[in-house]
Design a protein around this nucleic acid. Structure first.
Lengths: 233, 233
DNA sequence: CAGTTTTTTATGTATGTACATAATAACATT
DNA sequence: AATGTTATTATGTACATACATAAAAAACTG
């Protein structure tokens, strides 16, 4: 064996990837331990650790104390979608952002909403509906419920020029949330708003965000027909 | 100041999160440098670095050499979806997995396919269509094209009992890929296969995987109506 | 031999030190 | 003032070492 000497964690990672790819190390099987690899690569164990930990985070390796490190039997590809403010999303594509508030009110929500948000069934919530546009064509319809107990300052906003999407991200901190992707058929009202045919298939994102133990907001985003969310693996 | 002493990177991270959350450090603004934080927290700079790096990876902090670390003005939430073998996906839900091959053939693909896969327009590819079932009801329809030049062994498979989805993950390595989520309307054929109404809105995943500079496979997955992909933020 | 305890071992992480790197700030030059 | 050069500085990383921790394997015990 010669001495290629992998002196930084990125090159160690590349070499490990190469071996997995070249089937030197095969799915489900153990790879040498960190100490041995460090010796072989001519670097410190911490450097190997850094490389392997990072690969484990991305799902390509399974690591367990004492049990060792093995190539993931069925590599769980992790598709990471960047969820950002819609305005930025559109501007990043080089399109002109447009926004239009459709409705704003303090109303008692349907049971499905108060149930999911775990608010009292008779308690009114702030309800904001708006349309986001890219280059003057409809891009996404936002239907949002905001919990005024958690975000009292949200009641003072009109959401006429700044979307709730953006205002909340800036002013309402949250600790965690859930997100769900699905496909729904456009109702006739939604079709009207998005300027598409009734029953068009719409990519839908439902998001529920929490601040500690109370819900901040629940939002449904309906994207224009044909919209794609893309990422690399 | 008292001395709470944060002795591991997780607790440092928690404290940093707490301060961001409590608006001690606000979006867009600089936070103290690693050395100062290490001093304050009573730990080594490497420990602070570990905590901050991890937060930067998840999009909550922006870090630049010399410029320092600041709370992300625009917190990009990263939704990580685990894309795994469909059989595992179903079994993890505690449901019975079923599989049925619908079609297998070596045919010249439509131009849209050969174009995306960058194969010669007249070259036949392996085409496999199959249905994945959960508890005996249709779950996902898989429509796949395989490049036999890259995966010659794939030609020997019938895909009658083992899905192409699973076979490929085990036998065909890939270096990178693209994935796109969208919503499509069920054609009458798709509706027949998935036992749903025509024009139902179907969550759709298109995936294209590469091995170096050649495409391994292109697959479209159509999920049963109402299907959701969920994750936490 | 089943069940429990101890040992072993591979990963996980904390620390001090040293140097690398990128980007800004300060300075000098024309 | 515009431009090029040189410090300065915060993050990024490598390393040796030490200890923590989880889990498997071995030893022990009734």
């Amino acid at each position: 064996m010669n001495n290629p000497s992998f002196r930084n964690w990125q090159s160690v990672q590349e070499e490990v990837l190469r071996r997995i790819h070249a089937r030197v190390w095969t799915p489900g099987n153990l790879i040498p331990n960190e100490a041995d690899l460090a010796l072989e690569f001519g670097c410190a164990r911490t450097t190997v650790n850094r490389a392997l930990r990072s690969l484990a985070e991305s799902g390509l390796l399974d690591r367990r104390r004492k049990a060792g490190t093995r190539v993931a039997a069925q590599p769980v590809a992790k598709a990471t979608l960047d969820i950002t403010v819609i305005r930025i999303e559109i501007e990043d594509r080089g399109q002109k952002y447009g926004y239009q508030r459709i409705e704003r009110g303090e109303t008692v929500p349907p049971l499905a909403i108060s149930g999911a948000m775990k608010t009292h069934a008779t308690r009114p919530l702030l309800h904001v509906r708006a349309l986001h546009m890219a280059d003057d064509t409809p891009y996404a319809f936002e239907d949002r419920w905001i919990n005024p107990e958690v975000v009292p300052k949200g009641l003072a906003e009109s959401y006429e020029t700044v979307s709730a999407n953006e205002w909340l991200l800036k002013h309402a901190p949250y600790t965690h949330g859930e997100i769900a992707f699905s496909a729904t058929s456009a109702t006739s009202e939604e079709a009207g708003i998005l300027c598409c045919n009734k029953n068009s298939a719409l990519l839908t994102i439902d998001r529920l965000t929490w601040d500690g133990s109370s819900t901040v907001t629940k939002v449904r985003l309906l994207f224009e027909p044909g919209h794609q969310l893309r990422t690399n693996l």
